[in-house]
Amino acid sequence: MALNASTLNIGDTHEEQVAQNLSRTQIVQYAGASGDYMPLHTDELYAREIAGYPGVFAHGMLSMGATGTMLTNWVGDGRLTQYSARFTRQVWPGDDLLAKATITNIIKENGETLAEMDVLTVNQDGQSVISGKATARIDA
């Protein structure tokens, strides 16, 4: 289901819980699926003793991927034309992530109608972990 320009307004939002009590196993699962085996994310001993972090933390790309779930659920499959994220804070095992998109603009370009949106994902303390933008083709 795609969004439609006739019913979509600037300021409209959509939010979804995209992680709940994020498990170390899901971080390992992401490492295996993406091929990014950086020990900071999967190797507690390395993360603490070599890198000096309190422990392992999630790949930024795991949070961006999880946030992408909220986007495609809202705008439809194959509808995104652009998606970007800044990783503003680390995500730790046990975190809950709430992802939200807000329409900032609706434009016409090369015969297509596009919705531009701000993307924000926060942890259980309301701290931003991803701040990004996305653009999707919508029906006119």
Binding site: V18, A19, Q26, Q29, Y30, G32, A33, S34, L62, G65, A66, G68, T69, T72
Partner: peptide
């Protein structure tokens, strides 16, 4: 596998 790993 990739979709599963991001919880989708």
């Amino acid at each position: 596998l990739f979709a599963r790993s991001v919880g989708d």
